[in-house]
């Protein structure tokens, strides 16, 4: 066994993870979740559903019209409608209801997406391949349309598929989303949200229409989710099962790791989360003989570690790395 190979491999993987479009999509989705959970105290456990709505809205529209911007608009409108549909019945009720309804609604979206009934649009179980909707996006690229470009060990296409162009756009979007969330949560509007997180009756007694604020928060956070969904599928393909509730749980892990109710928490948390995953995967693969754990079992073990990690994090450091214990996002 070559230890040098292990380290080279590990650090190469670290780098590609940090550049990855998937990582960027996680950051954006976690920023949305931060608006919901971190700043408003809304327990949305269906963020993956918002991503899926965004992904389907975008991919199906672009697939049939080949119009990129129309796809984006449909995705965003879809997320707004989804947020309103979830919010109207639940936002006047106790927090548990929102939790159950969001996770249920996300599951409904996934089941419908998976179903053969709408296969002409959604592709059913097989989903929608990236090639069906990625061309209009590639056409916007100022980089060469074909060919690969290598920086160090990282060799990606200029424009096609999981490309440099997509990486540039995805990480620029991350920067924009962080800036937007910063402006929003530091504003008087964000102050009202934080008040609601703690005690909505108090805020109500001060003349604020709490239900409207909660609905706005759900919509805004959901829009981030939809954008994350678009970014995610541009790198891969639309697959309902890739955006199930486990993805939402991952996003919570990222958010809580970095620190809920902090502007940079989602970014830091997502980086750390993925680096730990890559570290575990590479290390188990290298150090543990395959007679003990087969190649297929490595992801399972990493998932177990994620689950236990989430438990320990919430118990022992609920404020995460950047959070302030006095400003804990957990309402009760």
């Amino acid at each position: 066994m070559d230890i040098g190979f292990y380290f080279t491999n590990l650090f190469t993987d670290f780098g590609s993870t940090i550049l990855s479009v998937i990582t960027a999509s996680y950051v954006i989705a976690a920023i949305g979740l931060n608006i919901h959970f971190g700043f408003t105290g809304l327990l949305n456990i269906g963020q993956a559903g918002f991503m899926l709505i965004g992904a389907y809205g975008f991919a199906i529209t672009v697939r049939f019209t080949q119009n990129f911007w129309l796809g984006v608009v449909v995705a965003l409108v879809g997320a707004v409608l989804f947020a309103l549909a979830l919010g109207l019945p639940t936002l006047k009720l106790r927090g548990d209801y929102l939790a159950i309804v969001t996770i249920a609604a996300a599951e409904i979206v996934r089941l419908i997406g998976d179903n053969q009934l709408l296969a002409p649009f959604t592709g059913g179980t097989f989903g929608i391949p990236g090639s069906a909707f990625s061309k209009p996006f590639a056409a916007l690229s100022p980089l060469p349309q074909i060919g690969l470009f290598q920086i160090g060990p990282y060799n990606y296409p200029f424009t096609e598929g999981d490309s440099w162009w997509l990486r540039i756009v995805a990480w620029s979007l991350v920067a924009v989303c962080i800036a937007i969330s910063f402006l929003l949560v530091r504003s008087p509007w964000g102050r009202v949200l934080r008040g609601i997180r703690e005690d909505e009756d108090a805020v109500r007694s001060l003349g604020k229409n709490v239900t409207v604020y909660k609905t706005q928060s759900l919509v805004i956070g959901g829009l981030f989710g939809a954008v994350a969904g678009i970014v995610n599928v541009l790198a891969t393909s639309v697959s309902a099962d890739a955006m199930g509730r486990t993805l939402t749980f991952e996003l919570y892990t990222c958010l809580l790791l970095g620190g809920a109710a902090t502007v940079f928490g989602p970014l830091l948390g997502t980086f750390l989360y993925w680096l730990v995953l890559v570290f575990l995967r590479d290390s188990i693969g290298f150090w543990v003989p395959s007679s003990v754990l087969s190649q297929q079992q490595i992801p399972q073990v990493t998932w177990i570690v994620v689950g236990i990690g989430l438990m320990l994090l919430v118990i022992f450091r609920p404020q995460g790395i950047l959070g302030n214990k006095k400003e804990l996002a957990f309402g009760d």
């Binding site: 749980f249 919570y252 892990t253 177990i304 994620v306 689950g307 989430l310 438990m311 957990f330 309402g331």
Partner: peptide, 22 residues
């Protein structure tokens, strides 16, 4: 808090699912 406890159960659920799969 109850919300914290709920997230703990989510973590436990995730871990147990993959223990079963393992």
């Amino acid at each position: 808090g109850l919300t914290q406890l709920m997230v703990v159960t989510i973590g436990l659920s995730l871990a147990l699912e993959y223990v079963f799969q393992l």
